[in-house]
Computed example of a mutant assay.
Amino acid sequence: MRIQVAAWQEMYGSVLPGPVLAELTGDEAGERFREQWLASVERPPTSRHRLLVATDERAVVGFAAIGPAEDADRWPGTDAEVYALHVHPDHPRRGHGSRLLNAAVDHLLDDGFHAVYVWVLETGNPLRDFLEAAGWRPDGARRELDMGARVAMVRLHAAISR
């Protein structure tokens, strides 16, 4: 949960009004995140939903949440989604993101998926830059989230195979 809060502060800090960001990352939000993560780990929606973690000296420093694609224009039988991929901002450029992404793809292939999608901020950000450097590309889908300010997002995709 602390990783998600720190990642959100870094990712959304420049696009959200201060009070909204404080609400998303405050103690109350942290408790909501903790409850949501605990429920998702104890009772995943399907056997194809996974939570992967990256560790550094026995401390969890990153995570990836993956599973069947949830967008109406995707086929959940063969299309997967990365719901979240975050590394704590205090642990950048140490390979944690790459290992998480590789492990996610391995699990998705084992589960029979052929393509994977992820929503990222439209404006440049480290996650989008990282994924595009790994070969992911926009598929033309866009959306705007109302998070106290309009936040433009694009969907990236990659074909996966062994």
Rank of each mutant, 00 (worst) to 15 (best):
W136H: 00
G135W: 12
T46R: 09
D129W: 10
R94D: 09
A29G: 09
R137P: 11
L21K: 06
P68D: 02
G26N: 15
H86T: 11
L16E: 05
G148P: 00
E28C: 05
F63Y: 10
R74Q: 11
D90G: 09
H49I: 08
W136R: 07
H96I: 02
V120P: 02
D146Y: 04
R32L: 15
N125R: 12
D27E: 15
D79H: 02
G26K: 08
D90P: 03
R143W: 04
E81C: 08
A133E: 11
R34I: 09
L145T: 06
A54V: 09
F113L: 02
A7P: 07
R32H: 15
P44N: 06
R143H: 05
Y12G: 09
T46H: 12
F130T: 10
E28W: 10
H114D: 14
T55P: 01
R32M: 12
N125W: 00
A6S: 09
R34P: 07
F113K: 08
G77V: 02
A22P: 03
L127D: 04
A134F: 06
T55I: 08
P138A: 04
Q9T: 14
A69D: 08
P92C: 05
V87D: 03
D90H: 12
F113V: 08
E23F: 06
P138S: 01
G112Y: 12
T46W: 04
W119S: 00
M11H: 13
D71F: 10
P68E: 03
A149L: 07
V105W: 03
R142G: 01
G112D: 07
D110E: 15
G67T: 02
A72L: 13
E28P: 00
P68Y: 00
L24S: 01
R99V: 09
P17L: 02
V5N: 05
E81W: 09
V82L: 14
L24V: 02
A80L: 03
W119G: 03
L101G: 01
A80E: 03
Q9C: 08
E122M: 11
A59M: 13
V15D: 06
L24A: 08
A65T: 06
G77R: 09
T25H: 06
E31L: 14
H96R: 00
H96G: 09
P44S: 10
N102Q: 14
A84N: 07
G26P: 00
T78N: 07
L21P: 06
V53S: 04
H107S: 14
E122A: 11
L131Y: 03
V118S: 05
E31V: 13
L21Y: 05
E57W: 11
A80I: 11
A104P: 04
P76L: 05
S98V: 10
D90L: 15
A64N: 04
V20W: 03
A29M: 10
E144W: 11
A69Q: 03
F33K: 00
R43E: 10
G148A: 05
A22L: 13
D111E: 15
L108Q: 11
L51C: 12
A80F: 03
D110M: 13
H86S: 13
H91S: 07
T55F: 12
A54D: 04
R43F: 14
G148N: 01
R94V: 10
T78V: 12
G124W: 01
E31K: 11
T25K: 02
D27N: 01
L21C: 07
R58M: 03
E144S: 13
